[in-house]
């Protein structure tokens, strides 16, 4: 069973639908007991950093997630905003403290040159920095769907596993121990996205 964390930010049902399609049981929840019983945890999210952190704290999820992911070491997947929240600080509409699981911060994309509209919306390729099992089986064209204006800057380059480019290189995915996170939306990236979700489900940390 996978717990999809419900903290009032974004497209939790899309993640649920994608997992259902690949025949994986999941539950959309913010209940400590249910999260504790789950084998894996997904933190989805679309929206602004500050509001998201406030919601996580308000629902008591910061502590619950720390217990399950950091202390117990359950496999974890953060998606889009759910990835950015892992950083130490976010800079969207103010300065906010994140979960701090991945050293680094979240800053606005600053593409060099003209014609790079924000948000960065649409399909873009990723480049693998490290060949990790979570990306096995992708099509030759490694295109994924993105919607974001901000991206994480991990302080430790060992945490970086994939980059994208939009007038500037940005972090497409990070991996640290049992924590995996993507800036793109696997649940909206058709075949490649379902492959990443399947890999996450099969992932042995």
């Amino acid at each position: 069973m996978i717990a999809i964390i419900d903290y009032g930010m974004g497209n939790k049902h899309s993640v649920y639908n994608a997992l259902k399609y690949i025949a994986v049981d999941s539950i959309i929840t913010r209940d400590a007991g249910e999260i504790s019983r789950a084998e894996r945890i997904i933190l989805p999210g679309v929206g602004a950093f500050g509001a998201a952190m406030e919601n996580l704290r308000q629902f008591g999820l910061e502590d619950i997630l720390h217990e399950e992911v950091i202390v117990k070491g359950k496999p974890f997947l953060g998606i889009c905003l759910g990835m950015q929240l892992l950083a130490e600080t976010g800079t969207e509409k103010g300065l906010f403290k994140g979960l701090g699981w991945i050293a680094g911060d979240v800053v606005k994309l600053q593409p060099a040159g003209t014609g790079f509209k924000l948000p960065h919306v649409g399909w873009n390729d990723i480049e693998l920095v490290r060949d990790v099992g979570l990306f096995k089986g992708l099509k030759k064209e490694k295109a994924f769907y993105y919607v974001h204006s901000y991206a994480m800057r991990p302080a430790d380059e060992n945490d970086l596993v994939a980059t994208g480019n939009y007038g500037v290189d940005f972090t497409a995915a990070v991996l640290k121990n049992n924590i995996f996170a993507t800036q793109f939306h696997p649940e909206k990236s058709q075949k490649n996205g379902l492959t990443v979700l399947e890999n996450f489900v099969d992932w042995r940390v």
Partner: peptide
Amino acid sequence: AACECFMP
């Protein structure tokens, strides 16, 4: 549609 179409 959202149950089968994994795109925006």
